[in-house]
Design a protein around this nucleic acid. Structure first.
Lengths: 248, 248
DNA sequence: ACAAGATGTTTACGCTATATACAGTGGTGG
DNA sequence: CCACCACTGTATATAGCGTAAACATCTTGT
């Protein structure tokens, strides 16, 4: 509230709309005085887009499609959201919501980071489009995204690592979750079967070119295994971090 | 050669064109008998698309733009490439080329995996669009991609790990390279400065909400540091793998 | 020589995001 | 009270995308 609405000084057209987008993400928007009551809010729009993406995938989330969800024209959305980029940012913020309270859930940096990763993973599983949405370019972070980051960094504080190291470890763990989401997106059930069939046929014809791969497949490296991929990678990473800590 | 050209039995329209795309990737195309000589090849098209993407980014690689590079119409490309998806796959195969000979370059699984990661990282740096290109959906792997995978798996064979574990470790290391590329794509120089400025202003206003993050920034966790991010993550991961090996 | 098959162009369709111009609504200052 | 004007929503238009379909042109096997 309070801040007078600046009369839209977009000299750079779309270059410096960052502040507008940021204000949106942080909910710092002042409602207008005169004129008809808005029938929508950025949050309601984002929520509709989220349920749409959950149901039919991110690629079906177009301005037209989302607007149709409210029975309005596509251009109506631009009264609430500067553009599609910002809409996607709002979607991300919407599904992230508040991070879990790690200090309550578990004790010790390792257990806390581990539950952090599992919670984050749960979000990726619930909203498979999240990976693609955050993989797009030039992200600005909203409060929820920062809160997740804060939670992970807080868990790392008692380790005795330097600030730079803690940051790197955070990136490492966050990356592991993203990677797993990526792998899941690449190989769904059907595709995996098809890929395996075609690739094995090709490998039979070129087995001399890929000896290690051929052997790995023969040894069942690609058949679904009992070890959870998230935990496997996480354990390796955290073991490595533990080594670093012990060394200091 | 040899295989008679099937008269294009696309009943599913675009669902079962996979074999066509695969044949392209593996160079198993038979040249036609009658008709004018083709003025292009899939490889030349892909190469032009690669240099275009290197120079102006993947988003400017459109069928029209690539076709213009040869002075032909956009539709002419469809005589050589089934669609844009397959073109991008060809681009990926083109820039990957043959993996390095790790057994010659270094000895020991750790050194070999490390150089593997560095070589892969070099490719990502030379072609920043590679991340986005491989992040797209439903990839089928070409021979070069499989060759890189084979090289990494070969390096892991002397570790004594199970086939499943070796596969997981491979995914872990490959993921680390991808993650770094992702971070580089997210935060280029200019954007980083701008992000830091805006975020620090927001953090000043909400420092109570993000105590650990605020402290981390104050401690210089985000200022460019001397430790190489690729090596830092890699060292943690490989340390963790070493722990696993020792335990067995 | 002729037919067959391959190449390349033209045209068109449906889709995307969004700029622009306009119509209706309703709170507020004169 | 009423006119103004900020604000909402719509209609229209543009530029671009990938690609389907119809067509003309060229080359080669028969």
């Amino acid at each position: 509230m309070a801040r007078a609405a600046k009369p839209r000084e977009n000299k750079d057209k779309k270059a410096r709309d960052l502040p507008t987008g940021i204000a949106l993400l942080w909910g710092e928007q002042d409602q207008p005085a005169r004129g008809p009551k808005p029938s929508l809010t950025p949050q309601r729009i984002a929520q509709a887009a989220v349920t749409l993406a959950d149901a039919e995938g991110l690629e079906t989330v177009s301005m037209n499609r989302v607007a149709a969800e409210f029975g309005v024209s596509a251009m109506a959305l631009y009264r609430y959201v500067p553009g599609k980029t910002e809409l996607v940012e709002l979607m991300v913020e919407a599904v992230l919501s508040e991070p879990p309270d790690l200090s309550a859930a578990s004790s010790g940096w390792r257990a806390r980071l581990s539950t952090w990763a599992h919670r984050q993973w749960a979000v990726y599983q619930a909203h498979p489009w999240l990976l693609a949405a955050t993989a797009m370019r030039r992200q600005i972070m909203g409060p929820h995204q920062l809160a997740w980051m804060d939670a992970a960094l807080a868990a790392l504080e008692p380790t005795g690592l330097t600030a730079g190291q803690r940051h790197q470890v955070f990136l490492l763990v966050a990356g592991q979750v993203r990677n797993l989401a990526q792998q899941r997106a690449d190989f769904d059930e059907d595709h995996n079967r098809e890929w395996g069939r075609l690739t094995s046929e090709l490998l039979n014809r070129h087995s001399d070119r890929f000896p290690a791969l051929t052997k790995a497949i023969a040894d069942g490296a690609f058949t679904p295994t009992e070890l959870d991929p998230l935990d496997f990678g996480l354990d390796r990473i955290l073991d490595g971090v533990q080594v670093l800590i012990d060394r200091a």
